[in-house]
């Protein structure tokens, strides 16, 4: 079947199998592999995207369900060649090691700061508790969130 999506402001079409997830279609059919697949079960947050402005795990959404909707992925955060402040903060603070979790964290953090520009420590921890990072122990990710919130 065919689906039509607006991804990062661009209208895109893809022919998909009924069972394909939004994540699979982004990565394998639309040439947008920035969203990562680390569990396909909604447990790790690596595939976080904004669907009509709401943070979702793209692995839990069928591509067909997203037909006609608007998406923002990690590839769509930088504007006019300028990194999104959250992206800049992650690079600056050492919040990136292997980086596999980074796209998900960046999208989830951008979403958090859009809703709550100056989150408390507990709020940061809770908001990002659905995103796993195996490398950093999170300390520098919290630094990045605070830096981005201050900028």
């Amino acid at each position: 079947m065919r689906v039509e999506l607006t991804v990062n402001g661009e209208r895109l079409e893809a022919d998909v199998w009924a069972g394909e997830s939004l994540l699979y279609v982004l990565r394998e059919r639309l040439g947008l592999p920035g969203s990562k697949n680390a569990c396909e079960q909604g447990e790790c947050g690596s595939c976080s995207v904004l669907l009509d402005g709401r943070l979702v795990c793209a692995c839990l959404v069928l591509a067909a369900q997203a037909d006609g909707h608007e998406l923002v992925t990690v590839e769509g955060l930088a504007e006019d060649g300028e990194l999104h402040p959250v992206q800049a903060a992650f690079a600056e603070t050492g919040a990136v090691q292997c980086g596999f979790c980074t796209p998900g964290f960046v999208v989830a953090t951008a979403d958090l700061l859009a809703r709550s520009p100056n989150p408390s420590e507990d709020e940061i921890r809770e908001a990002l508790s659905g995103n796993l990072c195996r490398c950093t122990g999170y300390a520098k990710i919290f630094d990045a969130v605070r830096l981005a919130a201050g900028s």
Binding site: G34, Q87, T102
Partner: peptide, 23 residues
């Protein structure tokens, strides 16, 4: 000296090609 990772920018933008991203 503390320096930013050279791969940090492609990793935060989603451009960095992991082994699962190849085509």
């Amino acid at each position: 000296e503390s320096v930013k990772r050279i791969d940090a920018i492609p990793k935060v933008t989603g451009e960095f090609a992991y082994s699962s991203d190849l085509f």
